[in-house]
Simulated assay, not measured.
Amino acid sequence: MRLARDEGSFADAAFDTVYLGGGTPSLAPPEELGRLLAGARTLLGARPDAWITLEANPEQVTTAACAAWRDLGIAAVSLGVQSFDEDDLAFLGRGHSPEQGADAARTALAAGFPWVSLDLIYGLPGQSEEAWQRNLETAAALGPHHLSCYQLTIHDGTPFGFRAARGELAEMPEPAQARLFSLTRKSLSRLGFPAYEVSNFARAPELRSRHNRKYWDHTPYLGIGLGAHSFAWDARGARRWWNERKIRPWTAKVAAAQRPLAGEETLDIAALRLEALLLGLRTAEGIDLDRFRERYGLDLAAANEALLARLTAEDLAERAGSRLRLTPRGLAVADGLAARFTVA
């Protein structure tokens, strides 16, 4: 943490959110989590009242663990439930059962955390709309404050990627993915969880993720552990850097009193505009065109007048005053639409 603080961009920072994730921090004993949080406050400037989120696997969620986490000041728990279907969990290689996932949600809610979120994954090979609907209804009936629903994607260099390379696995066809995406939004809206971002759903506006929203609007953030990314505005411009992903090079650099960097980049204005566009269009609020022009120096509507007319005619986007939003049809292909805009 001292090495991260010495980077300079956050010398005077007062962080109001802390996120313990990127693995399974719920495996750590409470005393270790306590030392981490104490370091975040004394070395990194995390505020005493910072909103602290902990990622947890259902296997570690017990009444005693929740009480210890609450004593540490942890306010929010994000549970990696992934599914309430036994076959889904086996495919994903998860170590808990559907019943354990449901029990973990009940235990966390009973412990009095102000915010409990469940992570679910859809688009698994062969997954039916009926099976996914049951997952959504089970999750909503447990009464969490928030749900995150992610489509399965296969990345090179991962166990799923190796299976795909051998021809043993393939992503669900796009038309089927689109149907599940639409089903997710419609069902969760009916169940009291309107979408506020492509993958995120909250029972009320005040229950939207306090931490993750910062990634979407270029708020500076500092990552500490393996593979963690950071972003900052400073005299050198807008910069992003990331840490070593593997434990040996990470620990070797830290032991040598070096920041465990794997790489960094300076983002030019075109890259910043594209990121802001991509991330903004994924949200239900969309993009405030006036604020975009003030912050990034581009009249996005004027630079893309013909494109916006086509997207509106195709029911993919809509304008409301200075606000540009994607329609439900547009949100299903948000990333591809963002790439069509002129931002240079």
Rank of each mutant, 00 (worst) to 15 (best):
A141M: 02
S187L: 12
P25C: 15
W241A: 02
P98I: 10
L20T: 02
A102T: 02
D299E: 07
F341K: 02
R213M: 13
L92E: 08
S148W: 05
I224H: 09
Q82L: 11
E244Y: 00
A46P: 05
G157T: 05
S83I: 00
P173A: 15
L33E: 11
L337G: 03
D299Y: 10
E206F: 09
D156T: 14
L191C: 15
K246T: 04
V81D: 00
T219C: 15
E264T: 01
E171M: 05
A271N: 00
F201G: 01
D71L: 01
L191Y: 09
A75D: 08
V77C: 10
A104E: 02
A102R: 03
R35T: 11
F341A: 07
R248G: 14
F10S: 08
R329Q: 14
E318D: 06
A141N: 04
P25Y: 13
P58W: 04
L142G: 00
L109Y: 02
P175Q: 10
E265L: 12
R166P: 00
V77A: 08
G263F: 08
P249M: 10
L267Y: 08
N200F: 06
D119R: 13
E171T: 05
R163Y: 07
S128N: 12
Y150G: 04
T17L: 05
H146M: 13
H96S: 12
L222A: 12
A301V: 08
A271F: 00
A332C: 10
Y122N: 03
T107G: 09
A110P: 06
V81M: 01
R319N: 03
F341M: 11
G161C: 12
L33Y: 14
L324K: 06
S182M: 09
T138C: 09
A334L: 02
R319L: 14
G123F: 03
W233Q: 12
S230E: 10
A50D: 04
W242P: 05
R208W: 10
R340F: 06
L79A: 07
N243G: 02
W250Y: 15
L267V: 09
T62Q: 11
S97C: 08
V18F: 01
T283Q: 14
E275Q: 15
A228L: 11
G225W: 01
A344S: 15
G297S: 09
S230N: 08
A140K: 04
L311F: 05
Y296R: 07
Y221M: 09
A90K: 12
F160N: 01
A110N: 10
A14F: 08
E171R: 06
L118K: 01
F84G: 01
L89Y: 04
A11Q: 14
V116M: 07
A228S: 14
R291E: 13
W216F: 13
G286C: 13
P205L: 12
R291V: 12
A228W: 09
A344R: 14
G225C: 05
G112K: 03
G237H: 09
D16S: 15
A255R: 12
D315F: 08
T158W: 14
W250K: 12
F113L: 07
L136Y: 04
L109P: 00
